[in-house]
């Protein structure tokens, strides 16, 4: 493909970078990224990926926009309260960049639909707010050998890691099983600084762009932890677990499971 004059202008600051260039920009336009969640993390991740010209964004979320979301979920706005989040996000991202096609899916990922939904995407980004989805997405990505960029936020602290199944660690190498319901508070119970998902989401989007471009180092075998109050970043090494129940040598988990029972279903 040849760039249009508009594209040359829109992506000029990428094209100038030796690490991106016209070739890299074409990779971005051809890339397909799936976002789990259109909330605190999904909004900035999708916003920046759309701005960067990632050509296809898939996005799933079951919620509708509420006023309490707008303190941090920057793709939505006051007029859209009551609108499905995926619809609001699609409007925002496509308005920012008409080169981007957004496939919006209002609903929940389950063990029965996830493999089919994510199979045509190159990279998955987890911005979900609950452990059942987090483990389901991890297990599905391990099974499909799909790169997964995972982010999480609570109060003033966030974390990011990049999972390259069967190459680096997976989520279960880090935390083998979901914590029991009620042990870890949600954003709803504990609060979150509104800008925090912006920081963590921007880091997730950066990981995605590097994966697509094949440039730089990603957070493979590494958990990056950001403390907003201390203004500090910490890197924690996460080795692959040879006995990991899903990506280890003798996996105990061979099919997907829904862990819904007992978990709060409210959005963060």
């Amino acid at each position: 493909m040849e760039f249009t004059d508009e594209q040359v202008q829109r992506y000029s600051r990428h094209i100038i970078l030796p690490e991106v260039g016209g070739k890299g920009q074409k990779k971005l336009l051809a890339a397909k990224v799936f976002l789990v969640g259109a909330g605190g993390l999904g909004c900035p991740v999708g916003y920046y990926l759309a701005a960067a010209g990632v050509g296809t964004l898939g996005i799933v979320d079951d919620d509708i926009v509420e006023l309490s979301n707008l303190q941090r979920q920057i793709a939505h706005n006051t007029k859209r309260v009551g609108m499905p989040k995926v619809e609001s996000a699609k409007k925002t991202f496509e308005a920012l960049n008409p080169d981007v096609k957004v496939n919006a899916m209002k609903g929940r990922l389950t063990k029965d639909n996830i493999l089919d939904i994510i199979k045509d995407y190159d990279i998955v980004v987890d911005g979900s707010d609950n452990f059942p989805t987090r483990y389901l997405v991890n297990d599905a990505c391990v099974m499909l050998k799909k790169p997964l960029v995972s982010g999480a936020i609570l109060r003033f602290e966030g974390q990011v890691t990049t999972l390259l199944p069967h190459d680096g660690h997976c989520y279960r190498c880090l935390f083998e099983a979901p914590p029991p319901p009620g042990l870890v508070p949600s954003c709803q119970e504990a609060g979150v600084l509104g800008v925090l998902p912006g920081v963590i989401g921007a880091l997730e989007a950066t990981e995605v762009l590097k994966l697509i471009l094949g440039r730089g180092d990603v957070l493979k075998n590494t958990l990056l932890i950001y403390d907003a109050l201390k203004a500090s970043f910490r890197r924690v090494k996460v080795p692959r677990n040879p006995d990991c129940p899903i990506c280890g040598a003798h996996p105990a988990i061979t099919k997907l499971e829904d862990y819904d029972a007992g978990y709060c279903q409210l959005g963060g």
Partner: peptide
């Protein structure tokens, strides 16, 4: 910067 952008795209 479009002068360089165009030149860079051509040389790529």
């Amino acid at each position: 910067p479009y002068t360089f952008v165009k030149a860079k795209l051509a040389i790529e």
